[in-house]
Computed example of a mutant assay.
Amino acid sequence: MYDKLIKLTPEKNVMVNEPLKNHTYTHLGGEADFLVTPETYEQVQEIVKLANKEAIAFTLLGNGSNLIVKDGGIRGIVMNLQKLTSIKTDEEIVVAQSGARIIDVSREALRVKLAGLEFACGIPGSVGGALFMNAGAYGGEIKDVLVRTKVVDREGVLLDLTADQLDLEYRKSNIPEKGYIVLEATFSLQTAEYGAIKAIMDDLTYKRESKQPLEYPSCGSVFKRPPGYFAGKLIQDSALQGQEIGGAQVSLKHAGFIINKNGASAKEYIALIHHVQDTVKGKFGVNLEREVKIIGED
């Protein structure tokens, strides 16, 4: 398989038995059989077609921000789009490739005096990941600004879709069920004063840095907001802050975060997620639904 992959993308873009903890925000995860980092849309298409032809397992990693990879790693081909990072602007339109950080897209929008992506200035994920889960914060979400996207489907076919074709809802899209690989996103923004945009971004950055445990590895906010409640408040009121399983801990700074405090395994991290869910369910009768995705083998 290695020989076939390096015919489709340069050798430097193919890693064998690569530890995925080196590529996830939680610093968790076993090895990928093959980790590939294509540089062009055509390479993405050809690698998907190869996986289909060889009937080998295929997994899209994204940038590993809202993700837990289990300790056994992932078999087959794992694709990371970290080399697709172009961000271009044209009047009130911003086109960003999927491997670009959504934070960087918001900063580029600020530079050219475009408003609408301020909410994304603290979201750690990639553009592709942001579309995958219709990422949002502080009252804004991707759905508000996305107009088009280019994706590759399960067969390796390049598609140009409108935002409406992604069925974007709260922290949800049809991208996972359709098996799409996002290649780029087109955002429609509005011209505004640089100072006004920056003031909003500075305020949101302060709120994030003062309230979130950014000094530790984590997957970000673990749970979706349950209707009528705040996940962090429920966890806090369940006296779970500071609870630990192995090297994983419910953050003392923000109850909605679970941090990798001291070399946690994925098994420990996931066990703590389940403990939080069970405790909140027992105390308040509320089901906390995971926002973070868990993949890989035990």
Rank of each mutant, 00 (worst) to 15 (best):
A57V: 02
F187R: 10
A264Q: 09
G285Y: 09
Y41G: 13
I56R: 08
A239Y: 08
E42G: 13
A266L: 08
P176H: 05
L204N: 04
D202E: 15
R225D: 02
K88F: 10
V152W: 06
T89A: 13
E91A: 12
L159H: 13
E31H: 09
H275A: 09
E268C: 07
R148C: 09
D203Q: 11
L131M: 13
S98G: 12
T205V: 12
K281P: 01
R148K: 15
I6L: 04
E244R: 14
A239F: 11
E118F: 01
L131F: 01
Y180W: 13
A115Q: 10
K150R: 15
D237T: 10
L234V: 06
F284R: 02
K261G: 06
R111F: 00
I93D: 05
K293Y: 03
V78S: 11
C219S: 15
I259W: 01
G128L: 06
N80D: 10
G72N: 10
H23K: 12
E291S: 04
I93W: 06
A120I: 02
N66L: 10
V182C: 02
K4V: 01
G116D: 01
N134H: 06
T26A: 11
A109K: 05
Q97G: 03
T191W: 01
D202W: 00
S106N: 01
R148F: 05
G99K: 01
L272N: 01
N22H: 15
K281W: 08
R75T: 07
F230H: 14
Y229S: 11
I197R: 06
G282T: 10
G64L: 04
R171K: 14
T186E: 15
A51S: 15
Q277S: 04
K224F: 02
N13E: 01
K70W: 00
S210D: 07
L5V: 04
S173V: 10
R111Q: 10
Y206T: 13
C121S: 14
H254E: 09
